[in-house]
Design a protein around this nucleic acid. Structure first.
Lengths: 244, 244
DNA sequence: GAGTGGTCTAGACCACTCT
DNA sequence: GAGTGGTCTAGACCACTCA
């Protein structure tokens, strides 16, 4: 680029609204400026496409994504409205413990507290929708941030879904990390809650018995096949952040 | 439909894999059956489109959505892989308190504990990215499930973004419900944590001081304009559920 | 029946990134 | 430079739902 000519023309020639991102922003602007207010029907895809000078599919993608986050509501025949209705969605990134700890600039390590194969107890069978003779691997780990306990993990893995795990000892890699690498999933359910720590939990996490814990329980499936159920506990200084 | 002929042909003529949903399922099946295992490069869109007998855009949409949930990882030039990497996303539906209570079959009501207009304190200005002379409406409410306290809500609303709210008294409708109807948002940030209740919080929620609370803090924006920051507290029997 | 969103196709060009 | 995903276009048909 030796002969750099900056003349009358801008290098980025003041684009039309013809990308789905620009359309999303334009829609947001109109909602913010009350051009379209909650509950109001907005023009249909065809009309917007003509106005923006783009293909209908492009408008469709923009509106679809805005509807997915809950800002718009769409129904066939009825058209698209600005949501006057409250169901909103947030997306949450599920981090690896290791990444979470290292992101804070601390050193990560973990220890395996116990590891045994056997029949699943009743409440675990319920969570994983298992029949009564299903075998599971039960692993308990403690994860550290520098030298301080960070998370107590209590995990159950379906051996029918992940037979290879029977022989794995989790020396280099924690169960979560191992599973992520070897047993992908497509569905999950997460439960979040607060509880008072039991004596055991308090001892492991280095807090006083009865202190508040933040609980993160997760069950995962691949198609209809249950993979694992885990309960992860954090002391009360922990904060989970979600966006969008 | 008088002359109904059900002959050799099935009315649903055993479809090809030519919808993005079917493609998603087929991909999941191959991942589950280890045809493609974590970390592995899968065929590119062009090739898959040929195999499935559909357009590349259709494959693109299927792969894009699977990548969005974290099952696949995509990079230009590098191609698409089954995630060997753990960043997964969950979507969370944000319910209205009213709906949440009524879904449990309980009667909902709420009371306004306080309501005042003024300058925002430092920590709220930080959360909402406000300049120091910005005016806010501060509302505190208690929400009940039947006659039991269910949620304590401590909310700050930017008057510059939502000027109409200055005159609203929240008699029929709580602040959340009102805002949802009158002040749409496009971005939000949620923070979840556990804490020990203060004396005040405990009194309001009908628990013992120091008992664990589940905290749900949310800040919302419309484009870059901050709308509201709210902290919602629940006693420890509360559980928040996320899916996918 | 008719209007709206939902989706697919075939082709094209662009943007990123690896070599 | 070349391969891969990212996106847009123009046109088409389908599916749902309201009148």
């Amino acid at each position: 680029m030796t002969g750099e000519i900056s003349g009358v023309e801008t290098p980025t020639p003041s684009k039309r609204i013809n990308s789905f991102r620009m359309i999303k922003e334009e829609i947001l602007r109109r909602v913010r400026d009350r051009v379209w207010s909650p509950g109001m029907l907005i023009p249909n895809e065809e009309v917007l496409a003509q106005e923006f000078g783009c293909a209908r599919v492009t408008v469709n993608r923009a509106l679809r994504e805005l509807a997915q986050t809950g800002l718009l509501e769409r129904k066939r025949r009825a058209g698209t409205r600005v949501a006057a209705h409250p169901v909103r969605e947030a997306r949450m990134e599920i981090p690896l413990v290791r990444a979470e700890v290292e992101a804070m600039g601390a050193a990560y390590r973990f220890t395996v507290l116990s590891r045994e194969v056997g029949a699943a107890p009743e409440h675990i069978r319920g969570r994983l929708q298992l029949c009564s003779d299903a075998e599971v691997l039960h692993v308990r780990c403690l994860h550290f941030s520098d030298s301080r306990p960070f998370q107590y993990e209590d995990r159950w893995i379906c051996l029918s879904a992940v037979p290879e795990v029977r022989e794995v000892v989790f020396s280099d890699m924690g169960p979560n990390e191992w599973l992520v690498r070897h047993a992908p999933f497509s569905e999950m359910e997460i439960r979040l809650s607060a509880s008072a720590s039991t004596a055991d939990e308090a001892r492991l996490l280095g807090v006083a018995a009865g202190d508040p814990l933040f609980n993160f329980e997760r069950t995962t499936w691949l198609l209809d096949q249950p993979i694992t159920y885990v309960r992860m506990m954090h002391a009360q200084d922990y904060q989970m952040i979600l966006k969008s």
